[in-house]
């Protein structure tokens, strides 16, 4: 079992809780799909009786703050936030026990909607594959002169930094997802934004693929749920990385290999799910 401090408090005034103080001292990294993420330093839990942290290295953690979403009803917001933070912590621990690469939980605060997890030194797969419409700007009807030709990002360089080819990266993805499914964990939001490569510690080492963002995950042994999980990822690849069609194929080959005999039913169901998707009524 992983040990981490669970913080309880009743005082909600600003910066009064330990969690609020941690956030106040942390550096904002980005605003993800539902949370603000920060990098912070967290000391390991003091063993009862000990008074100093001596001998402990301070470890960087990622603080994921599901702040109050003002757009939705406060009752709905509070219940969603609580169940997602708790659900994410639970799923991560389940993954760890099953040997799936995920960042370990370091701290949970359900009241504040905060989860602290191990910091991963690396980057998201979406970034490394250069997907997304980031900062694209279209200019209509302008003269040709003084115009720079569309500089398409080459991301081979970013992957090179990690000593890994695109193909091998895809294999790591397939393998890790299969391990997760074997443990009956459904991710619920598989996209290339929700997986990271950990920078190798030495130049002769290969990076590790880490799955993140388990806020929508749940436990299920149903073939249907696993197939839908894969279908979500397939669509994410198609929409985010349209230029690289064969990528998902490589992911699936590695998945198949790791999943073993379970692949037969999952693969067949995935075909069904795809068909359903295309048949879905599209009435204007």
């Amino acid at each position: 079992m992983t040990l981490y401090p669970v913080l309880y408090h009743s005082n909600m005034s600003e910066f009064n809780t330990p969690t609020q103080r941690i956030i106040a001292a942390a550096t904002l990294i980005s605003q993800g799909a539902e949370a603000k993420v920060y990098k912070a330093e967290l000391h390991p839990p003091a063993i009862s009786g000990s008074t100093s942290d001596e001998g402990y290295e301070s470890e960087p953690v990622l603080i994921k703050h599901r702040f109050n979403k003002q757009y939705r009803h406060p009752t709905l917001d509070a219940s969603l936030t609580k169940s997602r933070v708790a659900g994410e912590a639970r799923a991560i621990n389940k993954c760890l026990r099953a040997g799936v690469n995920v960042p370990g939980v370091r701290m949970v605060d359900l009241q504040e909607g905060v989860l602290g997890i191990q910091w991963i030194d690396g980057q998201s797969i979406r970034f490394l594959l250069g997907g997304g419409a980031e900062g694209e700007e279209e200019v209509e009807e302008v003269d040709d002169d003084g115009f720079e030709e569309d500089a398409t990002e080459s991301n081979e360089d970013s992957l090179k930094e990690y000593n890994i080819t695109q193909d091998d990266t895809m294999q790591l993805i397939g393998k890790e997802i299969a391990k997760m499914h074997k443990a009956d964990i459904i991710h619920g939001d598989l996209t290339t934004s929700n997986m990271m490569l950990r920078r190798p510690s030495a130049s002769d080492q290969v990076p590790e693929l880490v799955l993140i963002d388990f806020g929508l995950s749940y436990t299920s042994s149903l073939v249907e749920d696993k197939a839908v999980d894969l279908y979500v990822l397939e669509r994410a690849f198609a929409s985010t990385h349209p230029a690289s069609e064969s990528l998902f194929g490589t992911v699936m080959k590695a998945y198949e290999k790791e999943a073993g005999k379970e692949w037969k039913t999952i693969g067949r169901r995935l075909d069904d799910v795809r068909l359903r998707g295309r048949k879905r009524s599209m009435i204007g």
Binding site: G130, G132, E134, G135, E136, E137, E138, V139, E140, E141, V142, D144, F147, E148, D150, A151, E153
Partner: peptide
């Protein structure tokens, strides 16, 4: 980071 990419629209002024 992918920076601001300016792209020329293929639509010419009529």
């Amino acid at each position: 980071m992918p920076g601001k990419i300016r792209k020329r629209s293929p639509l010419k002024a009529p």
